[in-house]
Every structure is written in C-alpha cells, then in structure tokens.
Design a protein around this nucleic acid. Structure first.
Lengths: 232, 232
DNA sequence: GTATGATTTAAACAACCGTTTGAAACGAGC
DNA sequence: GCTCGTTTCAAACGGTTGTTTAAATCATAC
C-alpha cells in the first residue's frame, strides 16, 4: 500500500487520466462514459473503479494532478516578484503576469497535455456540477486571497470591489481565450494562428492590462442605489 | 398543420422550452433528462418528441427562439448608430455598445428568462457538442461580419487580426461575466452585488473598451516568427 | 351528435449508464 | 517450488437513457 501509492502503478492510472482528460474536454463529463475512457486508454472497464473508486473521484483526480502544481507555481511567481520588490507595491502587470502568465505558459504546452488541461479548466469554470465547483473553490482558496491583496496594494485608488470584478473579467477572457478556440471560428472564418500558443500570451496580456487599468465608469456604481436609471 | 405552426399550440411547447432552458443552465445538456424536463414542465414525457422530434431538436429550439431575436437586435443597434454617423466611422465604444449592450440588457432581464438564457448561451460557447457549435456558427454568420467591418473602420491603425482576437477576448469576458457567476465566488468570498444586473454593464463596459483600445505589445507579433524568446 | 385531425397519455422498447463481482493473471519474497 | 498482495479481466447487476407505440382524450367543423 505504502509503496503502491508512491510509485508502483506502472501506467494504467496515467493512461486512464490522460484519456479521461482528453475526452472530458472533447465531450464534457456527463457525455463521456467510462467505457469510452477505458476504451481509449486500452484498459479494462473495471480498472477505473479499482484505481479511483468512482467516476466522480476520477474527475477530481484529473483536476488535482495538474491544478495543485499550477496554483503552486502561481504563488511561487508572486513570491518571487514580491521578494524582488522589497516591500514596494507591485505593478499591475507584474501581478497579472504572475497569475495569468503561468496559465498561459501551461496552455502553450501541447506536448504534455497542458494545453488540453487548460481548455478543460476553462470549460469547467462555467460547469455547474456541484462537486466540481466545490473542488475548484478549495483548490483556489489558498491562491486567490494572496493575489487580491497584491492587487489592492497595487491599485489603491480603485475600489476593491471594482478590482474583484475586473479580476473576474480577466479570468473570463483568459479561460475563454483558451477553452473557446472553437468559438473563435465564429469570429474569424479564416484560421487564426493557433499554431504558436505563445502568441496568445503576447496578444492577451495587453488586453487584460488595458481592461484592468481602464478608467472607471463616469457615474461610480453605488451599491445601495436601487432605482434603475433610464438608459441614455 | 398550417394553423398549428403559427398559433395553435397553447402552452405545452412553451412550458417545455422554459423548463428545458432553466434545467440546461443548471445541469447542462447531457445531465438533463427528458423525464426531468417534462416533469418540471408538468407535461407528458412523449410530448417532447411529439412537438420537437428529438432532444437535439429541442435544444436547438431553446436557442433559436431567443438567439434570432438577439442577433436581430444587435444588427438593429448597429444600423441605428451607423445611420446617425452618416458615413463617419463609428467610435469603438459605439460598436461595443451595439454588440454587447444588447446582450447585457437581455442578461439583466430576470423576469422573462433573458438572464437564464444568456447564462446558457455563455456556457455554450465552451460547449463542444458538434451540432450546437454548428448551430451557433449559422446564427452568427449574419451578424459577425458586420461588426468586424465596423471595427476595422473604427480602428484603422490596429491590425485586423489583432482586432479579431480582441473581439474574441471581449466575447469571453462577457460570456464569463454572465455565465460564470458561480465562479465569481472563487474570487470574492463575500457576495458581490448581483442584485442589480444593470450594474454589470456599467462595470464591464469600461473593462471591454480598455482592453480593446490597449496599446499593442511592444514587439509586434510576427506570425512567421518561430523561435521562442526567453522570458524577460 | 358525429366525424376528423391534433394532442395527450401510459406503457413498453432496446441501448447504454456506473458499479460490483469473483475468478484469473501477475510479480516479488522466501 | 509455493504464497500472498496487487492488478486485470469478462460478465453481470439494477437503473436510467431517448424514443416509439397504440390507445385515449380533446377540440373543432359539419
């Protein structure tokens, strides 16, 4: 048991995880059956339940094995930037780079499944399954507050609530940029250069920063205000 | 038949569509069974196949009945703005307002299901089911080129390819802002003011415009360029 | 009222779902 | 050689899926 947990599993576990990851992003969770997964992985049907216990546990493991590393890496990038800054508040672009740069670099990795996973992750943000949402919340609980504080310090003149919304918008633009490459063909009938995934970062980063630092709306949004204003 | 198509259906059709719409956004297409739909709608199981033919056709009809109107409205807003401009290229904010303003106003309508539908639509952009994607492509074929041309004219100094990407990013930020309100709780543990949906527009619009008009990356993205640059 | 077409209904259909079972195959330690 | 814990395997489990059927009900026109 102790040995088994650390190293013994030769490849069936990994084969299942890889197949599941690819199929989930292609067809979604519900539409992907265990028989399809084990079929593509070339393993027996029962092995999923043997190794993971249930389909739900398999889904969680698909996320866990990459998301833990991803969030760890994000925190490391933030730590590094803050260490260099020696107490001076970071600039917005440094914080955005720490959070989204790691994601984009992972999404640029088409060799080891990083791209596939990031597409899946983006898709999952709008996935309403309760246990997946709970799982994401737990995984992000450690990393989000750190970035919030950094952003608050970096933009002292912007109301914190506004910063959170814009953080949310940035997360959406990125997830969608990665996950919704199919939807991109709605916009451009001819093929855009998806080949070099590093190009996505060079395109997306200025957009995110432009949105984050955009001037506030003329009439500041007052939370308490109730009556709807006529559309101008 | 001719009568039936126009008006005869009293309410079962609509009851099914409303129930399906709400359930799809809650649980997704695959996870929503016909029995759940007919159960909530209070109609017989077979009536879905009778009125729509199949589950797939039902899904398409759920989108069609609102999306056609939405895109028509978007074109009307663009027409109006261009008529007022009398040949002068529109400003970016006018184009963005025409496209996204209509969506956001629909998303603000919680009374007649507009909000529910826009959440569903945002979710669906990352939904990979082939026939849904094809359906969206058809519905958008008429409206997207018009907005592309308007944006090209409005931003003559920005490479068209860059504009398309930023259009894509904007679409992502909006879809996500509407569909991913669950994911918002990843960012903010306390409740943000989702009550007034008009506030979303006042927050999102500056973000979109800031992103759209952001300065281009220092090193212009050369499509042909291959070698990866060391991270600075 | 009776005839006619549209709609609703309960029941059944085959196909597939995730999971479980018990035996077979494997691999390392002695 | 044999043993023992781990992993694989084919087969079956009960339950749910989308769809179909044929009879019952309804609404309208004559």
């Amino acid at each position: 048991m102790s040995l088994a947990d650390t190293k013994h599993h030769p490849d069936t576990r990994e084969r299942i995880l890889d197949a599941a990851e690819a199929l989930f992003v292609e067809h979604g969770f519900e539409a992907t059956s265990m028989r399809t997964i084990t079929g593509r992985a070339g393993v027996n049907l029962a092995s999923v339940n043997y190794h993971f216990g249930s389909k739900e546990a398999l889904i969680q493991e698909v996320f866990r094995r990459r998301l833990t590393w991803l969030n760890h890496e994000r925190l490391r990038a933030l730590d590094r930037a803050e260490a260099e800054a020696k107490g001076v508040p970071l600039k917005p672009h440094q914080i955005v780079e720490a959070f989204f740069g790691v994601s984009l670099r992972m999404a640029a990795d088409t060799e080891h499944g990083g791209h596939t996973f990031m597409r899946l992750l983006g898709r999952t943000y709008t996935e309403p399954t309760a246990f997946v949402r709970q799982f994401l919340a737990d995984e992000y609980a450690a990393v989000v507050p750190r970035f919030k504080v950094a952003l608050f310090r970096s933009l002292p003149d912007v109301p914190p609530e506004e910063i959170l919304w814009r953080f949310h918008f940035m997360l959406g633009a990125m997830s969608y940029a990665i996950a919704g490459t199919d939807a991109l063909q709605l916009v451009a009938e001819y093929e855009l250069d998806e080949k070099d995934p590093g190009a996505l970062a060079r395109r997306l980063m200025p957009f995110l920063l432009g949105g984050l630092r955009a001037p506030l709306a003329e009439a500041p949004v007052k939370t308490g205000e109730k009556g709807p204003r006529r559309a101008a």
